[in-house]
């Protein structure tokens, strides 16, 4: 899947992946997609909760070799 911006939060722990995601989205235009890579297992539920509460769309959420990849589409 294509994306417009990538955010690397590897090694960061709660709540940094969410805070950095929020910041990264602030510089993007509506409809653009942000790819977030995280190693925080808690971010799986948290990214979904972030999307639910902010109106951004979590297009996909997947895990590969202990890394979590999220595609977040800006509202």
């Amino acid at each position: 899947m294509s994306f417009d911006k990538e955010l690397d939060t590897r090694g960061m722990n709660c709540p940094l992946p969410i805070l950095k995601t929020k910041k990264a989205l602030a510089d993007m235009a509506s409809g653009q997609v942000l790819k977030v890579v995280s190693t925080d297992a808690g971010s799986v539920k948290d990214m979904a909760a972030f999307a639910n509460q902010t109106g951004n769309t979590l297009v996909s959420s997947s895990e590969e070799k202990g890394e979590y990849v999220f595609m977040m589409k800006k509202k």
């Binding site: 709540p15 805070l19 902010t54």
Partner: peptide
Amino acid sequence: LILASTAAALG
């Protein structure tokens, strides 16, 4: 600080 920053990020 964790709860305040996260809640603020959620709007």
